[in-house]
């Protein structure tokens, strides 16, 4: 179990600590002067996924596992899975994450969002026992590396959204959570809670427009 202990990093720059550890200093309105600091605070886990993809880095995977596996399990149990089924599915979700780490696109989603979609698909598969038709992929051209500045802005927006969810009054947070467990009417979540969905929407729109342009 020693593998779970974070140690000094050998891969150099932009290694994320577990997210939100620095939440206190990470004020939402202030701009960080240094890009590396922004990466540290606002792009949690992105570098972990890169290390899993590029280096098959088990330690990065372990840290990611320790943070996300319990949350994925909670998500599945709240969606109606038994403890045993949730445990089994969570292991499969985490294995999928390892196997598909090359598909993660930090210009389009946070790591948490990507894991959410994998967990949701597993939920449909295991709980609803159905196929999951997915929208057509918008694949990147062979040359199209994600733009680092765009990655940073999107990841920052995701962190802002995450922080906003965490700071909602309990009642509203509960409302949103229940919507995601298929337990509540979903309409007008943004309108009712004032979450900053507008800005993240425009970031995602820009990324898609760029993608369409690149594909022409």
């Amino acid at each position: 179990m020693l593998t779970g202990t974070p140690q000094s990093e050998e891969f150099g720059a932009k290694v994320s600590p577990p997210p939100y550890v620095t939440k206190g200093e990470d004020n939402q309105t202030g701009r960080h002067s240094d890009v590396a600091v922004i990466a540290l605070n606002d792009a949690p886990w992105v570098d972990h996924v890169r290390r899993i993809h590029a280096d098959r880095d088990q330690r990065a995977f372990r840290e990611l596992f320790d943070h996300f596996a319990p949350r994925v399990k909670a998500f599945l149990m709240k969606s109606g899975a038994s403890e045993a089924l949730a445990e089994e599915c969570t292991q499969e979700v985490m294995a999928t994450l390892w196997n598909k780490s090359h598909l993660f696109n930090p210009e389009r989603a946070s790591v948490a969002t990507w894991i959410f979609t994998i967990a949701r698909n597993r939920k449909i598969d295991a709980l609803r026992k159905q196929r999951r038709p997915e929208p057509e992929d918008l694949t990147w051209g062979p040359e199209a590396e994600p733009d680092q500045a765009d990655v940073m802005v999107l990841q920052q927006e995701c962190s802002r959204l995450s922080a906003a969810v965490k700071s909602l009054p309990d009642k509203q947070r509960e409302l949103i959570e229940r919507a995601f467990f298929g337990d509540l009417s979903h309409s007008e979540i943004a309108a009712e809670t004032g979450l900053p969905l507008g800005t993240i929407k425009s970031r995602i729109r820009l990324a898609l427009e760029r993608l369409r342009r690149d594909m022409k």
Partner: peptide
């Protein structure tokens, strides 16, 4: 698609906000 990915972004934030269920021994 933009609207869908925005909802998924919120899903990620909600997932991250959950208090986790402890994993079984030897899960990793």
């Amino acid at each position: 698609r933009v609207r869908l990915e925005t909802m998924e972004a919120l899903g990620g934030a909600v997932l991250d906000d959950l208090s986790g269920e402890s994993m079984s021994y030897g899960s990793f």
